[in-house]
Design a protein around this nucleic acid. Sequence first.
DNA 1: ATACTTGCAAAAGATTTGCCGCATG
DNA 2: CATGCGGCAAATCTTTTGCAAGTAT
Lengths: 144, 144
Amino acid sequence: MSKTSPFAISLEKTCQDRGLRLTDQRKIIVRLLEETISDVAFHPDVDEIYNRAIKIDKRISVATVYRTVKLLEEQGIIEKHDFKAGKARYEVSTKNHHDHLIDINSGEIIEFIDDEIEDLKKKIAKKLGYELIDHRLELYCKKK
Amino acid sequence: MSKTSPFAISLEKTCQDRGLRLTDQRKIIVRLLEETISDVAFHPDVDEIYNRAIKIDKRISVATVYRTVKLLEEQGIIEKHDFKAGKARYEVSTKNHHDHLIDINSGEIIEFIDDEIEDLKKKIAKKLGYELIDHRLELYCKKK
DNA sequence: ATACTTGCAAAAGATTTGCCGCATG
DNA sequence: CATGCGGCAAATCTTTTGCAAGTAT
């Protein structure tokens, strides 16, 4: 929160600009999600967000977290990931698309960007007669 | 069933070799899954398998489909996919790893293999100090 | 014979939703 | 003040599981 990343134009502001009502609970959730900008390895699931949230303000329910997270995703403000674990994980959308490497032992998530692979994705879609809209690449690895 | 693909060494045989008990219901499920070999666009979910199965033999339950599909996956005989739709989809494992292009309008799934991208994956993992164990690349596209 | 499988229905885990009082813009 | 939002609990959806009975090897 104090550490401002170049992307952190304040999600609260972004939400306001989109005309989303800024309730106390949304402010808290949005603030927590903001941490995923500076902490690239932090991809919380609903429960993690909820548990952190109630520590700040008890007047918040899981339902609200679910609703907020869904709303923000529809707005393209955050992204939903699945990482093979049964529950969804979220992070703030950044301008530059990145992929994920998941440490299958520790569960740690590492983000990476590789232009070469991004180009290839587009090229492959094109070759098959499609336009690339969205994509995901996940590398499940173990430490050497 | 009649059309034998080069990979179809008969899954039934494979199961036997692994010491899996071949019950009537397993035979049916396995036979249905075999179709994912010849029909590369066919990635059924549990319900689809179940619905086809009961047409062949009523004495089969969804629970068994879930149990069988899980068993086969643990054996590495089939693969589980998630494709952003809430439920898991399955296909028989083939020797050569391939990726998926999902038509976001029709839901159609296209498989493709690209050696260049496979190499890149390994290279990236290595660069980050990891060994690539598993990976998934999905391109969500729309027809041009 | 005996350990593994199955069906059924209940349970579990994640996510969604109806209702109604309440807060935001 | 009006519309949208939140809490709560019930409802959904997918997947798992306990139990008693049946079956493959």
